[in-house]
């Protein structure tokens, strides 16, 4: 009993003796809370709610003339809209930024623009953005792996599978032991797609399965469903008998997650093999 009392007393004294945390101004605190909440929702895949919170945070930071906070949340907002498949809105958002008022990560902006341009199949603009990003990145930069992956996607879109494979391999090497599971999954998916496009369907299958394994661990429904679609395509190419099963898995996942576009693709693929 005496020991418990002594421990409690020590705890209280420690609490009283600790340095008081400096209080932030309420408006800045609200902005940071909105940003933090948006990030949590983004991680949970609640993109609509995340968008609202990032937008609120962006406005709050703008209202206290906090340029870095505003830019950061603009980029968060752009990423959220990309996840929602609203590429046009992303370009509007990024092009609407005033570089003088929001000086910041030009490389990140270029990479996000390239993603949006890829989604809109604007190949020439994508190449321009990626060339500018590569010039900014130089020999090495923290975003080098992402840049390589986007270059691989652009090459694949331009029907250059070997080039795409080279970029995806480079990205995979850069990501080794970095703990960036999402980008690693993207790299494996790109390797699988590049190998399939290059005629190496047998080599594509383990890469696609590696991507699926990572995406399952991260519990990302859209990526899992698209991985299954890719696996179905590969199995179809090699003439495996369980192609329909892969498409059905894609359909199941997409239907459960409410991904209408992916579900439609799966249904079409199923119809094609019947």
């Amino acid at each position: 009993m005496r020991a418990k009392s002594a421990f409690l007393l020590a705890l209280i004294l420690a609490g009283c003796g600790s340095t008081p945390k400096p209080a932030e101004p309420p408006r800045l605190r609200a902005a940071l809370e909105a940003e933090s909440d948006g990030a949590k929702r983004y991680a949970r895949g609640e993109f609509g709610a995340a968008e609202r919170r990032f937008d609120e945070a962006m406005r709050l930071f703008a209202s206290v003339d906090d340029g870095p906070g505003r830019t950061r949340n603009r980029l968060h907002l752009a990423r959220t809209r990309l996840a929602q498949g609203r590429a046009e809105a992303v370009l509007d958002l990024l092009n609407g930024a005033d570089p003088a008022a929001e000086p910041g990560p030009a490389l990140d902006v270029l990479l996000l623009k390239a993603q949006a341009q890829l989604a809109l199949a604007r190949d020439a603009e994508t190449q321009q953005s990626l060339a500018a990003a590569a010039a900014l990145c130089g020999a090495a930069c923290p975003q080098a792996a992402s840049l390589n992956l986007l270059q691989a996607r652009a090459a694949l879109a331009g029907n250059h599978p070997q080039e795409a494979l080279a970029h995806a391999d480079s990205a995979l090497k850069l990501l080794h032991d970095k703990g960036e599971a999402i980008e690693t999954g993207n790299a494996w998916r790109l390797i699988a797609a590049a190998r399939l496009a290059g005629g190496d369907a047998a080599g594509a299958l383990p890469a696609a399965e590696a991507a699926l394994d990572i995406d399952r661990r991260l519990a990302l429904p859209e990526k899992i469903a698209r991985d299954w679609l890719l696996i179905g395509d590969i199995r179809r190419k090699v003439g495996a008998g369980d192609t329909a099963a892969a498409y059905r898995r894609a359909l199941d996942v997409a239907s459960a997650a409410g991904l209408a576009e992916v579900a439609r693709s799966a249904t079409q693929s199923l119809a094609q093999i019947k």
Partner: peptide, 22 residues
């Protein structure tokens, strides 16, 4: 933890669209 600037994990393909090239 007090609210702090958030860092989103990098994701060059948030929708996994690279799997099926256009």
């Amino acid at each position: 933890d007090p609210p702090a600037p958030a860092v989103l994990k990098p994701d060059s393909d948030p929708r996994g669209e690279a799997g099926r090239a256009r």
